[in-house]
Design a protein around this nucleic acid. Structure first.
Lengths: 194, 194
DNA sequence: TGAGAACTTTGCTGCAGCGCAAACAAGTTG
DNA sequence: CAACTTGTTTGCGCTGCAGCAAAGTTCTCA
């Protein structure tokens, strides 16, 4: 969709689908920064006073989106005061999210981080099914690993063990949370011991 | 100075000194989000569309600052267009910083993170001395640990070993970087092995 | 329908770094 | 200057989780 460091030629509004935003380190490792859901703006480098994209965006599933050339940004912000105001609120809440991520990465164990990540995805994109709440796009163990700073192996092990306990159900590139509440307990848990 | 979750009564401009911004987890662990240097705005919850502070601020050393009641925020932004624009640029760059932190926490080892943290502090607040560049306010091992998501013990061990190698010099609550370049190599290093 | 690609599971091994504990500075205060 | 308080160092044991390796599954495409 667009690439890190590339000239920020356009900004987008996602109408349908899901987009993964990733950052790549010099040595090739990828870190998922966030997932974009329908209705969200993306590629808003201009709002941050940048001329290049700070990250890459990849469609997690087929998407429909509107695109405008970057140079329209100031005009938009001018012509529609609410547009500007809302954008800044968006940026603000992304800053919050990022700080939350930093705190999680600093203080939580891998299992808690993965649990939090799943809950976040479920909240953001969950679709109710008769088995529980399903994450509404294909997501691999690798993807989850890149969100939580771990390896696909560890994620696989965690999901297996949670499936045994009836917390989640997963097939290839699909995850369904069966018992959000118990998963939340696990995510918050570990007060000292456990 | 102000506390997390507290009503955002004021916003501030730091004139002199250094401020540590921290987030506290429900179970009492503290994570340092960033350090504020003279000339920077702080407590700008209002710019993010919030009414409470998202974090706590503590003077790392005696400070001089200007404070305005929060309700003046919209007036300021209105009356001085540059003020508003600049603020949003600030927020944007903080978002960048936060994402960088996330990437570092996800992909780097503890020693690299500590090295990066020291370099960042040196760049932001360093003062040249005849021994190297000194971080210009009292900073304990514990503080560094809270910036990097590790323990004071590990930080202590790292600093000791770096001191042996002549990379840094440290006394109680003081750190001087003697060889920034070699430290940078260490921070970036570890391409595969080493 | 069969070969290959992509994703997942699982066992085993090793070690970075945390937790604990105890001794040791270096300031600070009466 | 003696008694504290606060920060630092260092040793040791343990463990969470990464790395490696090798099957096993599911999907896709010719």
């Amino acid at each position: 969709m667009f690439e890190q460091e590339q000239e920020a030629h356009s900004f987008f509004l996602l109408l349908d689908g899901h987009v993964r935003v990733i950052k790549t380190t010099p040595d090739g490792q990828e870190v998922t920064v966030r997932y974009i859901s329908p209705g969200e703006l993306m590629g808003i480098a201009h709002a941050l006073g940048r001329t290049t994209y700070p990250a890459s965006a990849i469609a997690a599933i087929d998407c429909v989106l509107l695109a405008w050339p970057g140079h329209l940004w100031p005009k938009f912000a001018d012509a529609f005061p609410n547009f500007g105001a809302n954008t800044y609120k968006t940026v603000g809440s992304r800053l919050q999210d990022a700080h939350t991520r930093v705190v999680e990465m600093s203080t939580e164990q891998v299992d808690q981080r993965v649990a939090h990540a799943l809950l976040k995805l479920v909240k953001q994109t969950g679709r109710k099914t008769d088995e529980g709440i399903m994450i509404d796009f294909p997501i691999s163990r690798q993807d989850i690993a890149e969100m939580t700073g771990t390896t696909l192996h560890t994620v696989s092990r965690l999901l297996s063990s949670w499936e045994e306990k009836g917390l989640v159900k997963s097939r290839r590139e699909k995850v369904t949370v069966v018992e959000p509440h118990r998963l939340l307990v696990l995510a918050e848990g570990r007060t000292g011991k456990n």
